[in-house]
Design a protein around this nucleic acid. Structure first.
Lengths: 339, 339
DNA sequence: TTGTATGCGTTATCAT
DNA sequence: ATGATAACGCATACAA
């Protein structure tokens, strides 16, 4: 059994003693209807508990006022905080938010496109870093969309995220300001845009301070905790050691800390570690992690704002919105003695 | 500019040389159409790239195949993992998932009801622990819904979650098995169902082992980290101390650990701490937290399964699905010397 | 097995 | 300022 039969615009019209056209106008263009009738309509609406049927409305208007959010892992803590911003802004502007968890699965990605192609969503927020499988073939027209967190390589999709180069530069300079000169970068990768950009900021900071870039101090990593651990172990099989580790993200930094702790080093006295992201556990590790905080709420709000502007036909003000991350000083970085 | 004009059922019918009714049947009731025509239709669909317009379909069918998820805090890590399960199961069954972040705000809660009353969502998942403001007034009919994580007090809303009593019992018995007798419970509260139930399990375990319940060892707390810290400090102003702390949840346990660490106690040698939930940081604190793990993915799947069964008119098999949490042994609990 | 025709609840055009 | 009416795209009762 369904919940009770809902009142329609016709019920309201009957009670108010007007036509359905007038009711529709009273709702959507109140100025175009006489005060007296508008009041009658308003009262009739109240009496019936009428709500516009969104389906009929969407069918007629050819827009659903829904936004589809595609993310590889909805459970990722980095995602959920951005989601809050996305949802807040969307809700404020009268839009609803649909969630699609793709798990980086091509089938699932293309499956979610039905929401677009069937008019169930007007726009797309992409966390995946690439066009959904199915669009790449170019056989479908692209709906308005903006990439978040991970830029879409190659395309010219508007992007909202953190300024990775600048953030990495600030992070590295913080280490330098604490007297460090031999600073390792953990997380070299040519595959991920984020890694590329953060490495770039790291190098810029070094160069800016006249510190030579030592390839031996740059280790590969894909951003996982395991990669941080592996890189650290790798570092110790040689005898060229840094005094500080700048990690491409907090997850990697955690791996480094675990590895270093296991080797019984006294942190941060013997090694300093710097992360990037400020994910929730950063303040709970020992030593608590000094890192760059992503303004996640703001990222979500800006991204949704940009998408809705696109949707409303305004020219995209910018193809890229880069927010500055904030340096969060905790206990994993120590000043180094003179060397 | 919108994306290209989409093909409709009429375009397909024209190409296949049949009526729209036949196309509709070929899609929805394939057996009711001759093989030859079905093939022609299928081919025409492929050629046009036709997708059913969900809005028109929903309008006609009076169901949207959408589920609205109402949560007080979408950013809560405990939420996002359950969300994965919810989304997975929904997607598997052809349903979409809509997110509503209420922030415990009555206005926002009632605002989201428009999704229900306007037919944009067929069912409701509640994380809030109470009926949305607006339903409580009783003026609207309730849609099919199920409560997750936090049961809805008073109503007879089907609930899916963890067996809190049993979990708390197992947790407390683990402490007992390690020789503890003076076990504190941090997180007494009459306001929250979860706290009530876990305290109940704690007491059951104690009674079951013939240990007297000492009211001095039961401290109030609302489940926040700060409440854990405060309770611990409160404990030390008196001289009656436990050997172990069973905390109503991991957040509380973290507060206890912070407080104990600050007092320079050697954990877990001097005090054992047990949490509940197994949230992400649990393995990163020092000492890493022994706790009860919630089967979050499973909870989400079960909840969605139950809701969809309701939606499809099947009688609710059960009003309550209680999943057993799993004991995760880490390093915050130690065996106590004989006393 | 297939086709015709109606209605789902709106918005928008065109009269009045 | 208001009303009659035609779409929007589909599913289905009924006819053939």
């Amino acid at each position: 059994m369904q919940h009770q039969k809902l009142a329609t615009i016709e019920d309201v019209a009957a009670i108010a003693g007007v036509s359905i056209a007038t009711v529709s106008r009273a709702i959507n263009e109140p100025t175009k209807v006489a005060d007296a009738t508008r009041r009658r309509v308003t009262e009739a609406i109240a009496r019936t508990g009428y709500t516009t049927n969104a389906m009929a409305r969407s069918l007629r208007m050819r827009r659903s006022n829904m936004i589809l959010i595609l993310a590889p892992d909805v459970g990722d803590p980095n995602f959920s905080n951005i989601l809050v911003g996305l949802e807040t802004e969307a809700s404020k502007r009268g839009y609803g938010v649909l969630i699609g968890n793709t798990q980086n699965d091509a089938t699932r990605e293309s499956d979610y496109l039905r929401f677009i192609s069937s008019n169930q969503a007007d726009g797309l927020i992409l966390f995946t870093g690439h066009l959904p499988y199915g669009y790449s073939s170019g056989e479908m027209r692209l709906p308005p969309m903006v990439a978040v967190n991970e830029p879409v390589l190659g395309g010219d999709i508007p992007f909202v995220g953190v300024d990775n180069v600048e953030g990495a530069r600030v992070a590295t300079e913080h280490l330098i300001s604490q007297g460090h000169r031999r600073i390792a970068f953990i997380g070299h990768s040519t595959a991920k845009a984020v890694n590329l950009l953060r490495e770039q900021g790291y190098k810029a900071a070094l160069s800016g301070h006249g510190i030579a870039i030592d390839p031996h101090l740059i280790l590969a990593g894909d951003g996982t905790t395991e990669s941080g651990r592996a890189a650290t172990e790798h570092m110790f099989v040689r005898d060229v050691l840094p005094t500080a580790f700048f990690c491409v993200n907090d997850a990697t930094a955690l791996g480094v800390i675990i590895s270093l702790n296991a080797r019984r080093y006294d942190l941060p006295r013997q090694f300093s570690i710097m992360g990037f992201d400020d994910i929730s556990f950063a303040s709970f590790v020992t030593p608590s992690l000094t890192t760059m905080k992503q303004p996640r709420l703001k990222i979500g709000e800006e991204a949704m704002d940009l998408l809705l502007a696109l949707l409303e036909g305004k020219p995209a003000r910018r193809r890229e919105v880069l927010l500055r991350p904030e340096l969060i000083v905790r206990n994993s970085v120590a000043r180094i003695g003179q060397d």
